[in-house]
Nucleic acid binder design. Structure first.
Length: 828
RNA sequence: GCGCGAGUGGCGGAAUUGGUAGACGCGCAGGAUUCAGGUUCCUGUGCCCUUCGGGGCGUGGGGGUUCAAGUCCCCCCUCGCGCACCA
């Protein structure tokens, strides 16, 4: 009598074997076709929770499947190991961030092994490893050389909770820090930036060719936010209403130059540098008061549309000239104009813009429509298309033109007049990378009193973090108090210099780790061009949709910039060919997270049901792209199924007692057909990431084999063996332990080294099929027919069928639609 | 407000080109075997009616196209996600 299924006995053994034998280690000279599967490297926060397990199960399935398909699969793992939580833990528990992080990496690594996920562990990359930091700093300096890094004093997002600046991308729509939830303040500080805006157009254009979820592509397009329009100067008017030529005009940006004749006022942002210059003496107090009020307002108030509009702007006392009409119009400040976009000043056209309409109404400014609204239009500002009206001047007449035509004519006129030109604007801002934190990669710059800002020479990299640090909740980076770190030598004059104490945003680390995986032991360069060409772009990248903008955009920028400075292959324009964004696991209706304390730990489930049952439940419960509630998982059903497979496949099973040999019967042929159909289905389902239906197909086939072993004259040994072998093989990527164990027990060797089974299309052909008989589109009968039945025969059989005749009662059909052999529809 | 995505049994979900709606699993019901157990194996299971032959209804709601609609078109409702004063 064979032993029962015992996952606790077999799973650790297989996991150890994959490690010992280096089954999923791969060399850069591997002869198989290269295929790069990558799951986003995790932040090591402790043991894996079910959300992790789900993500890494999908990746692992693909690694194993592609390997069986004959590819040489690169399956690396690493850790995004810099970041705030380690530093907070250090302050709270007096443990060094390095120790805390290393311990968490150990725990998470072992979690990943216990779910049976396989990697080339030798290639492991950790952000905080000096061997990796060295090249993060090297890239910074190369970008510095190439003019892609700059330092600027600029208004920045300051999070009082994290005590650091944030990138725009890390501030949510309500002006809150996306990590701590604190209200973000605006401060002026000297900060380091990556010049991602140099790549705005290319980052936008190349989205088209990516095999990424539509949603993610849209989010990136919106974030980059390209708009086309015109930039031109508004001359400042003197007391008589004439344009002054002793003062520079006020540049404004608009996407609707066609509506210029409707500009009845102009607006500057309250922070605009020319506010003082353009404010008259009698308005000075009102303007100053307004500026103070606005700066005291949080973004949350400023962005809300609820506040009274008349409180949100102030007249400067000055006028500008509308170049289209030659008339003077008043110049206001208003908080709805943003200093960070365009020129920080606008021409206001209330007839065609609702914000301008509201403002004009509140301040009693007149409104001129320049686009004729539809006849039934009863709204306020009209933003739809229509013929231009009220738009004729001395040298320009737009009347009657539709928007597009009027636009290009207006731009042409502006440039002919020397006033302005066509202009493309992007919403995308440069990437602020400085962080006032300890646990990050130091920015390799020193400041010399005589020579100024100096890059650290490449042969002095990496600039490492000192370990003898005292963590105090001062809100400032401990690096600022560490003399040994601070004191440096100027590489130019050898004089005393002070080291930069800011560290890099952790998104810098994750912007190139996928390249390092291609060549992780290289100590001459971040990675060789050959290694990068071999593996990149990543064939399949897997991660959460929460990285749709930040990480994915930065990584795309780095890849392009690295290629352009010659560090990466010239032709490598995109890092991730295909992207799959898996859904998250919810618990009690909300996202599972450490801070919410609603984590489900996989250990108990693995100890009870086993890793294979857990993996199978993950695959079965929902399509991988969708969010899933933990309450919907069906571990017991999966355990039951694996037990059934075990009983069916284990040598010496009582289910094999009636096996016969000799002649092949119709039953055997049918099982053979089902076996090939199984292979076809699983191949297709794995290819299209339809794992829930893949599991259904396995279960269905095992049910077929269960019925087969119980037929009267018993199953044919050859047919049964082939069916069981195929079942185990298609299950192997999903449940690698049990499949490997049973395959080996049956004397078939190592299932994970076996080739993916191929189905024979000839075997899928059936002789008979069920023909559906409908009357007026309603199902009335089902009849077994030969697949090659003629239309005439099909019609005759259908019309004569019992089900059809119940309705027809001998009457002649008006019409018969025949789709032999599947369907006949009789129109009565 | 704008842009995407989705609404199918008690539940999670299937349904490649319009062609048998509800695969597979959970749950539930009945039976068999065990019978202290989370055992195993069969059978049934969309709703309503039924003389047990079958009939009617049914994929968020309302229209439409078609011999035929979960699938295509129009309008509406609900939920989820993203963006949101970007001139």
């Amino acid at each position: 009598m064979a032993d029962g299924y015992n996952p606790q006995a077999i799973e650790p053994r297989w996991q150890q074997r994959w490690l010992d034998e280096g089954t999923y280690e791969i060399g850069n000279d591997d002869p198989r076709p290269p295929y790069y599967v990558l799951s986003m490297y995790p932040y090591p926060s402790g043991p894996a929770h079910i959300g992790h397990v789900r993500n890494y199960t999908f990746g692992d399935l693909l690694v194993r499947y592609r390997t069986m398909q004959g590819d040489g699969v690169l399956s690396p793992i690493g850790f995004d190991s810099f970041g705030l939580p380690a530093e907070n833990a250090a302050i709270k528990n007096n443990v060094h961030p390095r120790e805390y992080t290393d311990a968490n990496i150990e725990t998470l690594s072992s979690s990943l092994r216990t779910i049976g996920a396989v990697y080339d562990w030798r290639r492991q990359v950790k952000s905080h490893d000096p061997a990796y930091m060295k090249w993060s700093q090297w890239i910074f300096l190369k970008f510095y050389e190439a003019g892609l890094v700059f330092r600027a004093d600029s208004p920045v997002n300051w999070c009082p909770g994290c005590q650091t600046v944030l990138a725009n991308e890390q501030v949510d729509a309500e002006g809150l820090c996306d990590r701590s939830g604190d209200l973000v303040e605006r401060r002026d500080m000297e900060q380091w930036f990556y010049k991602i805006t140099d790549y705005a157009q290319e980052l936008l254009d190349d989205i088209d060719d990516l095999d990424w979820p539509h949603r993610v592509k849209t989010m990136q397009r919106n974030w980059i936010g390209r708009s086309e329009g015109a930039e031109f100067g508004l001359p400042i008017a003197d007391a008589d209403g004439n344009a002054r030529d002793d003062v520079a005009p006020l540049p404004v940006y608009t996407t609707r130059p066609d509506t210029g004749f409707g500009m009845t006022f102009a607006v500057m942002a309250p922070e605009h540098p020319r506010v003082d210059e353009l404010t008259t003496a009698d308005q000075a107090v009102a303007v100053a008061t307004f500026q103070v009020e606005t700066s005291a307002k949080s973004d949350i108030d400023r962005l809300s549309t609820s506040g009274a509009i008349d409180k949100r702007g102030v007249f400067t006392g000055s006028h500008v000239v509308n170049p289209f009409t030659g008339q003077t119009v008043p110049l206001y400040l208003a908080d709805y104009v943003l200093i960070t976009y365009g020129t920080g000043a606008i021409m206001a056209v209330p007839g065609q813009d609702q914000r301008d309409w509201d403002f004009a109404k509140a301040f009693g400014i007149n409104i001129v429509r320049t686009v004729q609204p539809d006849a039934d239009f009863d709204g306020e500002a009209f933003t739809g298309n229509g013929p231009a009206i009220n738009s004729a001047g001395v040298s320009l007449d737009l009347n009657g033109m539709e928007i597009a035509e009027a636009k290009s004519n207006a731009i042409e006129w502006l440039s002919a007049q020397g006033l302005g030109e066509a202009k493309v604007n992007f919403r995308l801002r440069d990437w602020l990378l400085s962080r006032q934190r300890y646990w990050g990669c130091p920015i390799p710059i020193v400041y010399c009193d005589t020579c100024g800002e100096q890059p650290v020479p490449l042969d002095q990299l990496p600039v490492e973090l000192p370990d003898d640090i005292e963590f105090l909740p001062t809100g400032q980076s401990p690096l600022q108090f560490h003399e040994g770190f601070l004191n440096a030598t100027c590489p130019n004059c050898d004089g005393p210099a002070r080291r930069e104490t800011d560290t890099m945003d952790t998104f810098v680390d994750s912007s190139w780790y996928f390249l390092r995986f291609a060549d992780p032991f290289n100590d001459e360069e971040p990675f060789s061009l050959e290694a990068a060409s071999r593996w990149l772009p990543v064939d399949q990248y897997i991660g959460g949709v929460e990285h749709a903008i930040l990480h994915l955009l930065y990584a795309r920028f780095f890849t392009k910039a690295l290629a352009d400075i010659g560090a990466a292959p010239k032709e490598l324009r995109e890092p991730f060919k295909r992207l799959f964004t898996q859904g998250m696991v919810r618990m009690g209706g909300s996202k599972m997270s450490k801070s919410k304390g609603n984590l489900v730990a996989p250990e108990a489930i693995i100890a009870d049901a086993g890793a294979d049952a857990l993996r199978l439940a993950i695959l079965q419960v929902k399509p991988p792209a969708e969010d899933v509630d933990w309450e919907d998982f069906q571990i017991d059903g999966c355990t039951r199924f694996l037990n059934r497979v075990w009983r069916l496949a284990v040598p010496g099973s009582d289910m094999h007692s009636t096996v016969r040999d000799g002649k092949v019967t119709d039953d055997d042929v049918e099982i053979d057909r089902a076996t090939h159909a199984l292979i076809e289905r699983l191949t297709h389902d794995y290819d299209r990431w339809s794992y829930n239906t893949a599991v259904a197909a396995m279960m269905e086939f095992s049910n077929v084999l269960y019925r087969y072993v119980q037929i009267e004259n018993g199953p044919h040994g050859v047919t049964l063996d082939a069916g069981i072998a195929a079942l185990l093989q298609v299950m192997a990527p999903a449940v690698p332990h049990i499949a490997g164990e049973l395959f080996e027990m049956r004397g078939l060797g190592d299932i994970h080294a076996a080739e993916w089974p191929v189905f024979d299309p000839a075997k899928l052909v059936v002789a008979t099929t069920t023909m559906v008989v409908q009357v007026n589109g309603k199902l009335r009968d089902r009849i077994g027919v030969a697949v090659d039945i003629s239309d005439e025969d099909a019609e005759a059989i259908a019309v004569a069928s019992e089900g059809a005749q119940r309705i027809l009662e001998g009457a002649t059909p008006r019409k018969v639609i025949v789709r032999a052999p599947k369907l006949v529809n009789i129109v009565a």
